Amino acid sequence: MTQLEILAAAGAAPGRLNPVQLFLDADIVVQAVMIGLLLASVWTWMIIVSFSLRMGAVRRRCRDYEDDFWQAENFDALMKERGKKDIASARVAAAGMREWRHSTKGGRVIDRDGLRQRLAATMESQVSAEADELSNRLNFLATVGSVAPFVGLFGTVWGIMNSFFQIGQQQNSSLAVVAPGISEALFATAIGLFAAIPAVIAYNRFSHSVNGLEGRLQRFADRLHGSLSRELETL
């Protein structure tokens, strides 16, 4: 190749990476890996947005319900009015009140210690159920965060293997022969990290939010348990 041809080739080469072109030039297996990772990334961001909105709404409804609950003169009326709404605190209170009514009806002798234990167990179970229900969708974020880099690495390894195969086919170890294939292969790892990093950050953040909400519900349950225990002393 003459000096003029080298200069012409350099002038025709792109000045920066083109992700679309890297995808189009990649091997079919590497393309499949990239598509899967991009779909996982899109789904991850959908979960991030929807879960953020949901957690904000859950915290707001719980705060408003608990404020009204402790100011209400008639707990039963408040629970009847707002118990059917999607409020985690309301379901915790309803679980405790159901156990209270079931154990105190009929004029029978009340086992005070047993009732206290059942009230605590019932409300703790409901608190755990609320936390589990919220954290169900976070499993996908954990999976993407841990698996996506390895899936991208698989695409990279496959692409590099293909580049070495091209070296054998063309019997030419020039960097110009292997560089495009290696670039396309490394792009798969980049997409894997692009999917994994937001998933890991969001999973850690949302797990902390769920734990915080679980603690809030547990404090509400403990306070209700104390109120019912005081009421139990008068029976």
Rank of each mutant, 00 (worst) to 15 (best):
R60N: 13
R60Q: 14
R61M: 02
R61H: 06
R61S: 10
R61A: 10
C62E: 08
C62W: 01
R63A: 15
R63G: 12
D64L: 12
Y65Q: 02
Y65S: 02
E66M: 15
E66C: 12
D67F: 00
D67V: 10
D67L: 10
D68V: 00
D68M: 13
D68C: 11
D68G: 07
W70M: 09
W70R: 08
W70T: 07
Q71E: 14
Q71D: 13
Q71L: 14
A72P: 00
E73N: 07
E73R: 05
N74A: 12
N74R: 08
F75C: 08
F75K: 09
D76F: 04
D76E: 12
A77I: 09
A77L: 13
A77S: 10
L78F: 10
L78T: 07
L78W: 08
L78P: 00
M79P: 01
K80C: 04
K80D: 15
K80N: 13
E81F: 02
R82V: 01
G83Y: 01
K85E: 15
K85P: 00
K85C: 04
D86Y: 01
D86I: 02
I87D: 03
I87E: 04
S89C: 14
A90M: 03
R91N: 09
R91V: 03
R91K: 14
A93G: 06
A93E: 02
A93L: 09
A93T: 11
A93P: 00
A94C: 03
G96N: 02
G96L: 03
M97K: 06
M97G: 03
R98K: 14
R98S: 15
E99M: 13
E99K: 10
E99T: 15
W100R: 11
W100F: 11
R101I: 11
H102E: 14
H102P: 00
H102M: 10
S103E: 10
T104E: 04
T104M: 06
K105L: 08
G106V: 02
G107W: 00
G107N: 14
R108T: 14
R108C: 09
V109G: 04
V109H: 10
I110F: 09
D111W: 09
R112K: 14
R112S: 15
G114A: 12
G114F: 08
L115E: 05
R116V: 04
R116S: 14
Q117P: 00
Q117Y: 11
Q117T: 11
Q117M: 09
Q117C: 11
R118V: 11
R118F: 05
R118P: 00
R118N: 12
L119G: 12
L119S: 12
L119N: 10
L119A: 15
L119T: 11
A120E: 14
A121F: 01
A121P: 00
A121T: 05
T122L: 04
T122C: 13
E124C: 06
E124R: 13
E124M: 07
S125K: 09
S125G: 15
S125E: 13
S125M: 11
Q126P: 01
Q126Y: 05
V127T: 12
V127Y: 01
S128V: 04
S128M: 08
S128C: 05
A129N: 03
A129F: 06
A129K: 07
A131Q: 04
A131V: 05
A131F: 08
A131G: 07
D132G: 12
E133Y: 05
E133W: 10
L134K: 06
L134H: 08
S135E: 09
N136W: 01
R137Y: 08
R137I: 12
R137S: 15
